[in-house]
Amino acid sequence: MKTSGRLDGLLFVLFFVIGVVVCIWYLVGHDPGFLPLASEHGGFIDSLFMATLIITGIVFILTHLLLVYFAFRYKGSGNGDKAFWYPDNKKLEIIWTVIPAVIIISLIVVGQVGWGKIFHTEPPDDAFVVEIVGEQFVWNIRYPGEDGEFGRTIPELISRANPIGLDPTDPASEDDIMLLNELRIPLDYPVLLKIRSKDVIHSVFLPNFRVKMDAVPGMTTTFSFTPTMEGEFDLVCAELCGLGHYRMRGYVVVQPMDELEEWLIEQREME
């Protein structure tokens, strides 16, 4: 059997070296590609990502180094001479079962601490509440108004003029403010998103804020976070929702609380 592999071994090494160099060059130029961070919990996610990247990066390089080195070094001649007979080593195997387990469990523990902060902590009572209702292919944004309460919605009342079916007979609905695709939230202040959907599953994705939560019809999901950067950002749909999925675009505007309150009053007057 003629299977000379000098070239293949070399190609493995070459490919690995070039690949790693290109990767590092790209990483230096672009970070890992994160958009500018604009929320408090996002910092945790980013650093957990970076920690995982470093750990997995080391593992990646080490294992691949071995792989390509072995590929380069241990070429068979094909004339039937024997390789090194080494079928088993319990100690070695236990070591490389335990070490990944320890690393991984510590990653889980750190991750769970953060997960708990994001999802298991109740948002404060005075959090700034906004409702987002997904629809093919727009986002309906609703603010509760001065009374701090959302008016009742009834699906039977939905129409072009009343996109979420607000019940006019409910006193709480009088001062509700409805907007399309424009989400304004206060700077450095806890925000609670109440997420619903009118038709199919959407997903509210704010890449700058490291926020993502599905909008599931028939239930209300929530996500609470604190914006930390002023400016205008994207609101993206991240769950396949139909032919307009790719252009289901919204804007997020973060501004100081007093400006936002003024703006809300303006909106109220315009209606």
């Binding site: 059997m1 299977t3 000379s4 592999g5 293949d8 071994g9 071995l66 792989l67 072995f70 590929a71 241990y74 070429k75 068979g76 001649s77 094909g78 001479d81 024997k82 390789a83 090194f84 080494y86």
Partner: peptide, 8 residues
Amino acid sequence: LWRGKIHY
């Protein structure tokens, strides 16, 4: 793979 006689 280590110390094998790899046939490509």
